[in-house]
């Protein structure tokens, strides 16, 4: 097996907080707590989990939009966290991000053409203004918009169209990896499918790799090669998409899968409901983070010792004392 495009090991990010105005003892939110995964060239890794589980923070740490507290990120053989300013600038061309909220992610005071062209200006792509214009036109056409839309402002477009503008902006620097941070979560289901298809087509055409962050498994099912399930800052299970759906190992994954509605009248499915709320990440439960809500029988070990990721079958890893 060749080296993966992106290799993340033991990534951690803690945000310091203080419990009260006058309190001296500093606490920290462990937003990302020892996350490891690989993404191969042209592959898609789906990352799922509830809100607040650290999936967006993970994505931003990889891009160094947030400085990670620890761990390593190796992209294309380069240690991302050790790059100097120049190296980081080069990295910006290779890794891009598409945001969740298509209404917040585009500067309302710039035209679509200016938004897409900005990346080229920053990185000195394109021979001159006319050449960049032509490139912008091509990109807009590529994502299903019209070149005439160049002179318009973002507020004149619908959510799906704005997301396409965001995709065009990310593509402008010809990246190898795009982090899609809940890229379709804010869209209608029908528009979701269109944007997902667009992303898929772009992947086939340009050999892009995606890190696809979403909060529900049904969205990532169709686009992902591999899927990582996160809970409270940790990856609890990672496997090939088909394998994960067919043979979920972690009780949390089982619960998530059972929550996907099946559009088939009369069919009943046993739903595994999760009790309670996600614990506060400032004071996560000891041992396995999930043990407070775990529906299967608990060992004393669950509350005291952190379960390591261990393989349960080829390419399928799970972090559970009871499984694998």
């Amino acid at each position: 097996m060749t080296a993966p495009l992106l290799s993340v090991r033991d990534l951690t990010k803690t945000f310091p907080t203080r419990s009260g105005m006058f309190s001296r003892n500093k606490l920290a939110v462990h937003a990302v707590d020892g996350v490891s995964f690989d993404i191969g060239q042209g592959q898609t890794l789906g990352v799922v989990g509830e809100s607040g589980c650290g999936k967006s923070t993970t994505g931003r740490c990889i891009l160094r939009l947030i400085e990670p507290s620890g761990g390593s990120v190796v992209f294309d053989g380069k240690d991302v966290l050790a790059l100097d300013a120049k190296g980081q600038q080069a990295l910006r061309r290779d890794m891009q991000i598409i945001f969740q909220d298509p209404f917040a992610s585009l500067n309302p005071r710039m035209t679509v053409g200016a938004i897409v062209a900005e990346a080229m200006t920053i990185h000195g792509l394109g021979a001159d203004a006319a050449d960049r214009r032509a490139r912008v036109a091509t990109l807009l056409a590529r994502v299903g918009l019209k070149p005439e839309h160049m002179g318009r402002y973002p507020h004149e477009f619908s959510g799906g169209q704005r997301q396409r503008i965001g995709i065009a902006r990310a593509l402008a620097v010809e990246p190898k990896l795009i982090v899609c941070d809940e890229a379709v979560s804010a869209l209608d289901v029908s528009v979701q499918a269109q944007v997902l298809n667009l992303l898929k087509d772009l992947q086939d055409e340009l050999g892009l790799a995606y890190m696809f962050i979403a909060h529900d498994l049904s969205v990532v099912e169709n686009v992902s090669d591999r899927i990582a399930v996160m809970y409270l800052g940790r990856v609890v299970e990672i496997a090939d998409a088909a394998d994960l759906y067919a043979r979920p190992q972690h009780p949390y994954t089982e619960a998530l899968l059972s929550a996907i509605p099946i559009p088939e009248p009369g069919r009943r499915k046993t739903r595994r409901k999760l009790e309670g709320e996600m614990p506060n990440p400032i004071t996560p439960p000891g041992g396995c983070h999930f043990h407070t809500r775990c529906p299967i029988r608990k060992l004393p070990l669950c509350a005291t010792e952190r379960p390591e990721m261990k393989p349960c079958s080829a390419g399928h890893m799970v972090a559970c004392h009871l499984r694998g």
Binding site: R92, Q96, F99, D101, I122
Partner: peptide, 23 residues
């Protein structure tokens, strides 16, 4: 997010301010 997007594109601080934040 659009400022974060500019950061992700490698925009310098000056560009972030002049092009995105100030307007």
């Amino acid at each position: 997010e659009f400022v974060e997007a500019a950061r992700a594109l490698g925009a310098s601080r000056l560009r972030q301010v002049v092009q995105h934040i100030l307007p």
